[in-house]
C-alpha cells in the first residue's frame, strides 16, 4: 500500500512511495538526457505534422503548411532531368539515322541511351548484349528474321512481333504435321533436306524432301532456304536457329511450330528512345 516517499538508507535514493508486503520501490527516473531527447522528438514530430501532410479528415487530409506533395516533387524531378536531356533526345528524334551516325558525340549518346534501355527492357529475352536464347533471336549475328537494317529494326521494336499493336509484324507457319498436310514420312523427308541446309549431313530422302520443300516451304523460307524478311520467314540455310539446330528441332517445328511474341514497345518507350535502341541493336554486330 502506498506509503510516504522516504529516503532509502542503503542507496540514498528516494522511494516511489509504493509498498507491497514490506517491499518498497526505489524511484529511478529516466536519465535527464534521454528525457530531453524524447521531448525534443515530440516537439519535432509536432512541427513535422504542421509542415507536412499528416492528419486525415473525413473529406480529405491536412495538407501541411508547406503544401508538400511527393507526387508533385517527382513530376518536377522527372521534368527537370527530361529538360537536361531534351537537347540530345530531341535531336535524336528529329535527325535521320544517317545524320545521327555522322555526328559521333550524338551517336555515342544514342548508343548509351540504347544500351541502358536494352538492359532494362530487352535483355531478359534477348540476353546480355543480344546473345539470344532458344526461342529469342540473337541480335549480335547477321541472321535476321524481319531484317537487320536500321529501319527494319526500328519497325520491329516499335510495333513488335505478333503483339497487340495493330501494325505488328506477324507471320504464322502452318502446323504441317498436326493439321495433316504432310504425312509423317513426308515430314521426315523434308527434315532430311532441311538438315542439309542447317549444315548437318543431309538424310537419305533429301531429294524427295527438296521437292516437298519447294512446294510447301519455299514461299516463306525461300527456294534455297535463304529466308524471306518481307514475310518473316526465317532463313534455314544458316547455322543460327531460333528453336534449335538438330533434326528433332526441325521435325518438331514442321509438326507443330512454335511462334514467339515480342511486345510492341511504343507504349512504354518514346520514339527517340526507340531510335537510340535501334542504333544500339544495330551496333551489336549484325546490323545491315
Amino acid at each position: 500500500m502506498p506509503t510516504k516517499v522516504e529516503k532509502d538508507s542503503v542507496s540514498g535514493r528516494l522511494t516511489t512511495g509504493h509498498e507491497w508486503d514490506g517491499l518498497k520501490e526505489l524511484n529511478t527516473p529516466l536519465p535527464k538526457w534521454w528525457l530531453y531527447v524524447f521531448l525534443a522528438c515530440v516537439v519535432f514530430a509536432a512541427g513535422q505534422m504542421l509542415l507536412y501532410p499528416s492528419v486525415p479528415f473525413f473529406t480529405g487530409y491536412f495538407p501541411g503548411l508547406l503544401g508538400y506533395s511527393q507526387r508533385v516533387e517527382v513530376d518536377r524531378a522527372v521534368q527537370a532531368v527530361a529538360q537536361q536531356r531534351a537537347e540530345t533526345v530531341n535531336r535524336i528524334g528529329a535527325l535521320s539515322f544517317e545524320q545521327i551516325r555522322a555526328d559521333p558525340p550524338l551517336l555515342n549518346a544514342a548508343l548509351s541511351i540504347g544500351r541502358i534501355t536494352f538492359a532494362e527492357n530487352c535483355q531478359p529475352c534477348h540476353g546480355t548484349e543480344g546473345t539470344g536464347r532458344p526461342g529469342y533471336p540473337a541480335l549480335g549475328d547477321d541472321v535476321w528474321i524481319w531484317g537487320g537494317s536500321l529501319a527494319a529494326i526500328q519497325q520491329t521494336i516499335t510495333h513488335g512481333v505478333r503483339s497487340e499493336d495493330k501494325d505488328t509484324r506477324t507471320s504464322a507457319m502452318p502446323a504441317f504435321g498436326a493439321l495433316g498436310s504432310l504425312k509423317p514420312a513426308e515430314m521426315e523427308a523434308v527434315a532430311d533436306y532441311v538438315q542439309g541446309l542447317f549444315g548437318l549431313p543431309p538424310g537419305k530422302n533429301a531429294a524427295e524432301g527438296q521437292k516437298l520443300f519447294v512446294d510447301n516451304c519455299a514461299s516463306c523460307h525461300g527456294d534455297k532456304g535463304q529466308g524471306n524478311q518481307e514475310l518473316g520467314g526465317p532463313p534455314l540455310a544458316s547455322r543460327v536457329h531460333l528453336y534449335g539446330g538438330d533434326r528433332a528441332a526441325i521435325l518438331a517445328q514442321i509438326n507443330q511450330p512454335k511462334h514467339g511474341v515480342m511486345p510492341a514497345w511504343n507504349a512504354r518507350l518514346s520514339a527517340p528512345i526507340i531510335k537510340s535502341l535501334t542504333l544500339y541493336v544495330h551496333s551489336l554486330g549484325g546490323g545491315q
Partner: peptide, 21 residues
C-alpha cells in the same frame, strides 16, 4: 504486365536461369 511475352513468363517461371543467367 505486357512487358514480356506469355512464353517468356512461362519459360522464366519454370527455369529463370535459362533466360536470365
Amino acid at each position: 504486365g505486357g512487358k514480356y511475352s506469355n512464353d517468356w513468363q512461362y519459360g522464366h517461371l519454370m527455369a529463370p536461369r535459362e533466360l536470365v543467367p
